[in-house]
């Protein structure tokens, strides 16, 4: 009986102690990583500060490729024709509904005047780049927190922290990311974060000859972008994925949705 008692007490003791240790650990970890836990829960500042987005009026896009070219220059994107932060695609729809998509060198050298194909019923250009999704799958899958959504809604990469696993490249539904061949880290459109933070427009928008592309703050009711969205009938790419993209296209045709 007595033996049993001691056993019980020692066991209780053990629980107490281990409980205390666990509690202590928890306290220690709470001092600073709490922020991380909160961040993991997906708290994002909405309604205060800027919340950037992009808009394109496809009626105005002439497919000159200036945006793609300027982006390569501005952001030191490798010259090879498979690395793009921003590029232009030409969609051609034949009368029997076949859709052809072409993007020679991402549109950097422009699109050749096509030998007019009588079969083609309609054709249009679509400039593409990161959609800066509010619920971005690339940020979700990053194992180390190297890809993140900035407080103003721009999806960025922390080059110094990225381990180059390429998971985000797989996760992006819009094919906006690539692994930098020299740095071996993920690279993507930053909405020219270094420019917009200094009050300049992103390079692609600066050089657009027709003013087809604009950017702005979605929280500011007087911004160009909000006006643009209100005045046009904008759609986003792949809405069913629920990634909440912030790249708004006016006059997006069904073939490209």
């Amino acid at each position: 009986m007595e033996k049993e008692n001691t056993k019980v007490s020692s066991r209780r003791d053990f629980f107490k102690k281990s409980g205390a240790i666990a509690g202590g650990l928890l306290l220690v970890s709470m001092l600073d990583p709490l922020k991380q836990i909160k961040a993991l829960a997906g708290e994002k500042p909405k309604g205060k500060g800027a919340w950037y987005g992009i808009g394109v009026d496809l009626e105005k896009c002439i497919g000159c490729g200036s945006c793609a070219k300027a982006c390569k220059t501005e952001n030191n994107v490798p010259k090879e024709p498979f690395f793009f932060r921003s590029w232009v695609e030409q969609y051609s729809v034949t009368a029997n509904g076949v859709v052809k998509v072409q993007s020679p060198n991402g549109g950097v050298d422009g699109f050749k005047q096509p030998v007019l194909d009588k079969e083609i019923e309609k054709s249009f250009f679509i400039p593409k780049s990161c959609n800066h999704c509010a619920k971005s799958p690339c940020e979700q899958v990053c194992p180390v927190g190297a890809t993140f959504i900035s407080p103003d809604g721009v999806v960025l990469v922390d080059e110094t922290y990225c381990i180059g696993c390429g998971y985000c490249v797989q996760a992006c539904p819009y094919a906006c990311r690539y692994l930098h061949p020299v740095k071996h880290t993920a690279d993507k459109c930053t909405l020219c974060y270094h420019r917009i933070k200094k009050g300049l427009a992103p390079a692609c928008i600066t050089v657009c000859p027709t003013g087809a592309k604009i950017y702005g703050d979605l929280n500011d009711k007087n911004s160009d972008l909000v006006k643009f969205i209100k005045e046009h009938n904008c759609t986003v790419l792949k809405p069913h994925l629920n990634t909440k993209p912030k790249f708004f296209y006016n006059a997006l045709k069904e073939e490209a949705e």
């Binding site: 961040a39 407080p151 960025l156 110094t160 270094h194 420019r195």
Partner: peptide, 25 residues
């Protein structure tokens, strides 16, 4: 890293890192 987790599950310094990029246009 020092500033990891200040703003979210990332290095807050990375924002400045991105801002520091040289502009060309």
């Amino acid at each position: 890293p020092k500033t990891f987790g200040d703003l979210g599950h990332y290095r807050a310094d990375a924002l400045q890192y991105n801002i520091d990029h040289e502009k060309k246009f």
